[in-house]
Design a binder for these strands. Structure first.
Lengths: 371, 371
DNA sequence: ACACCTTTGTTAATCGCTTAACTAATCGAT
DNA sequence: ATCGATTAGTTAAGCGATTAACAAAGGTGT
């Protein structure tokens, strides 16, 4: 077996005094000459190990040597190659966030919060939108398996038939935020949907409303069911009966809001207030009310959920339930990072919400007239 | 120099028939036993090179062998480790997007478009918000130098004193989107701001407006200057003089809109139309007009810029200039990817815009009365 | 004078994958 | 019978870092 001359290998050349022009094979197409750790080591007259350990504070060097290394780094403009770092350390220091739609202001705010918190822990954030598709959700999990990133914060808005849950079972470094997926033992961070609905409902009842319609979220969604439950609880507590024909369940969209509003506001026997379980829905209702010349809040009170940024821009300003989206993001990140050190799933967290009072709720007319 | 026994090395063991229990040092804390390429190779009775090249379609194997490899992959549930892949290939197959604020619906929409396009080319997207801070912008460039990602799409909203430009000079794999930074030879993708302003202005003039105020963007911003220039051009072409006291330049914010509107709409000598160079600004104006009981569009016409999602949710629906944000994202990604193959900076692109007519513009009252 | 610790480093293996360069075997054509 | 092409792979270097394990020099206590 004849040994062909091996490809030029630069081994133990450093410190040998021999000078080579660096003629490294650049696999990277746009690479400008990149300075590596061994360049720095050579310049400083040290081994790569010493420099590496110094840079990672794992070796205490005398000041004079430190200065030499620092000078070499500055001179050569050395930047550690993160790709190499990640390979050896087995960690990417990046997490991914998967949301249904980043254009939804709620998820945009969540993304901002997550990014801020992640950065403060030294993590970068990959963003992807699933568009509500299972395939994309699974694709994200795939990337997780491929060590693309260290963990994933998953927001779904889709009822799961078990396929997602099955995939999730295989991972430990995933946190579910905002919406639930039944099954897997994972960290979960939600908002207290039930409390929010109670707050909103009580607010309406407090103004004297009895005939309240609720446009709740999808039956298939955790938040949808919780909000409806909160509504029922608050109504029960105030001894106000809930008329089945005043309960609607559907998507959190403007269009669903419009659709329900049209049927609800058509006849004369309309409710005095509508609890829309999403600001999008509330906006649709508002639009229809305007089209029908029903004045809000004089003739109809509307309350929303989410406190999306545009809620204050509507006219009238929308009274709604504020979600602590910053906290949601913060806790999601912390829960995720905690799984990196401790394999047991973090506790599920329910974050408190609060009511934001603007101008879309007033006392019902009938009660005014009675006065 | 005595040679200590080297750390257990598994070299050339594959195919040797000897069976070892894999007792690999797991540097990764949460690592489940990960199957590597060499596990697959051993299982399939091949070399890692063969498997690698087969997987990358660089080696054509006979069907029987292919089947063996595929079976091994399935059996061991092998996922290529992207970190290792990236190190050898010198590419991360990820790009970063830096926006001032992801909560700004315009940037959220841009992010969505960029993510979609990037994914279709096999790239992931890192998201960061700069909050309009130079430090964060530079931090992103730093990550670029550290080979965190292959390229960067940069959206700034800050006038640059040259510091950013200086940093940008050092990179080739950056594309500027939406807003300009003077100096560096980089790919740029903008919207045709001037055209948009002309379209809006012409629309108002066409309705008979002569006394038009413009609330333009910041003087220091490319888009701000362009939009103002477009306004002036359109006015000049129609022979309508521009009164200096009707020209305002400031930030693209609701607050600036409110502020200008309050001074503009206070007295009786108010303009018949306002061209707000951002939908945020227009929203502020709308709010003040409503507070002052000035009816829009009957007494005052308002036109915006951006066509943010909430523009249609306002009342009245805001007539505005639609930015082709999807195209913007698409071209930004393409321009960026093109720099990976071709070092010369891609051409600057100006994307056409169009007017979206809703309900915030009508003929001015005076001209109605004249009829 | 000896053992022992501290300081200041070094050596080489390793992470998991890609790839240039090689090779052995087979086949058809000259 | 020999040559060249094709098929079906292999070998080992290398990407740029981290790190366990070693080691020489100098100081210190007894």
């Amino acid at each position: 077996m004849s040994l062909r001359p091996p490809r030029q290998r630069q081994r133990s050349i450093w410190r040998s005094g021999v000078h080579h022009d660096r003629q490294r094979v650049q696999q990277n197409r746009w690479a400008t000459a990149m300075t590596t750790l061994s360049d720095v080591a050579r310049e400083a007259g040290l081994s790569t190990a010493a420099v590496s350990r110094y840079l990672n504070s794992k070796l205490d060097l005398p000041n004079e040597t430190k200065a030499r290394v620092d000078a070499a780094i500055a001179k050569l403009d050395y930047r550690p190659n993160q790709m190499a770092r990640r390979l050896t350390m087995g960690r990417t220091e990046a997490i991914a966030l998967l949301v249904p739609e980043i254009t939804n202001p709620f998820f945009a705010a969540l993304a901002a919060a997550i990014e801020t918190e992640a950065r403060s822990h030294g993590y970068s954030v990959y963003l992807s939108s699933s568009g509500g598709s299972l395939d994309r959700e699974i694709e994200s999990l795939q990337r997780l398996s491929e060590r693309h990133m260290d963990g994933l914060i998953l927001c779904t808005n889709r009822p799961d038939d078990g396929s997602l849950a099955a995939q999730l079972e295989r991972h430990r470094n995933v946190v579910l935020a905002d919406e639930d997926v039944a099954g897997p033992q994972l960290g979960r961070v939600f908002v207290d949907n039930r409390l929010g609905a109670k707050l909103a409902t009580r607010h309406l009842i407090g103004f004297g409303h009895r005939d309240i319609a609720i446009i709740a979220g999808p039956k298939t969604l955790f938040s949808g069911r919780e909000r409806l439950a909160g509504f029922r609880e608050a109504m029960a507590k105030a001894n106000v009966p809930v008329d089945k024909r005043r309960v609607f369940q559907g998507s959190y969209s403007m269009d669903y809001g419009r659709q329900v509003a049209r049927s609800l506001l058509a006849g004369p026997a309309r409710p005095t207030a509508i609890f829309a379980c999403s600001d999008f829905v509330a906006t649709g209702v508002l639009e229809v009310a305007r089209a029908l010349s029903i004045s809000v809040p004089d003739e109809l009170s509307i309350i929303g959920f989410d406190d999306m940024p545009f809620a204050s821009m509507l006219s009238p300003g929308l009274t709604t339930v504020h979600q602590p989206v910053d906290d949601l993001g913060k806790h999601a990140v912390r829960a995720l990072l905690s799984t990196f050190d401790d394999p047991s799933p973090p506790e599920t967290r329910g974050l408190p919400v609060k009511l934001v009072v603007r101008d879309s709720v007033a006392a019902p007319r009938t009660s005014k007239e009675r006065r």
